[in-house]
Write a protein that binds this DNA or RNA. Structure first.
Length: 188
DNA sequence: CCTGTGATCAGCT
DNA sequence: GCTGATCACAGGC
């Protein structure tokens, strides 16, 4: 029997569970990227989530298959990357907020127009720019190029706290990070 | 350390 | 018409 293409995490789970499981996983886009060090969970019951009010043109990917990308434009300027999780029709995802730059650092510096390793991918907008995330990536599967996900090699120590930049459901501790990482968008 | 502002657009009221 | 899952830069303490 043919072995299924394995993603390193099970995306058919609650956004919070997936967000925790993604810390330490290596994310590459066209072989450029690094270790995920910060994520946030958003599900449909959550008033801070794009999916809260149901499907729209923008958030359609959140209501599609799990294990696919949801790319949205933030503040009219930045492209941000999410991983869709749970079953189709529910509308949940995990925002990838920061990675530790490891592979293709020169390419990321070029796209960002700056050198400082700590600021290359520290935040969803910066990460999107560094990885070359575009609308064309919206709805694409994470188990095939240009995406490449690789399992964590060690069990990370998690930092947990409230999400950043939202005004609703502020108290939900749905932001997860690699404790002590210098590549976070902000300290916990 | 902190606060304010401009860039720029989809979705909501 | 206003609000954001943001960032960079300017200015004040």
């Amino acid at each position: 029997m043919a072995k299924a293409v394995a993603l390193p995490v099970d995306f058919d789970a609650d956004a919070v569970v997936v967000a925790r499981a993604l810390i330490g996983v290596t994310l590459l886009v066209h072989r450029v990227g690094g270790v995920i060090v910060e994520t946030e969970a958003y599900d449909q019951r959550d008033p801070a989530s794009h999916s809260h009010s149901g499907p729209t043109l923008r958030n359609a990917a959140m209501f599609g298959a799990s294990g696919h990308a949801y790319v949205y434009r933030s503040y009219g300027i930045h492209w941000c990357l999410n991983f869709v999780c749970r079953e189709p029709g529910h509308g949940a995802g995990v925002l990838i907020r920061a990675i530790e730059p490891v592979h293709g650092i020169d390419a990321m510096r070029e796209r960002r127009g700056m050198d400082d390793l700590r600021l290359l991918c520290a935040g969803p907008g910066r990460l999107g720019q560094a990885l070359g995330i575009k609308p064309a990536h919206n709805g694409k599967p994470l188990h095939a190029p240009p995406f490449d996900l690789r399992a964590a090699t060690v069990a990370p120590t998690l930092a947990i706290g409230p999400r950043i930049g939202i005004s609703k459901a502020r108290d939900n501790p749905w932001r997860f990070g690699l404790a002590g990482s210098p590549y976070l968008s902000r300290r916990f």
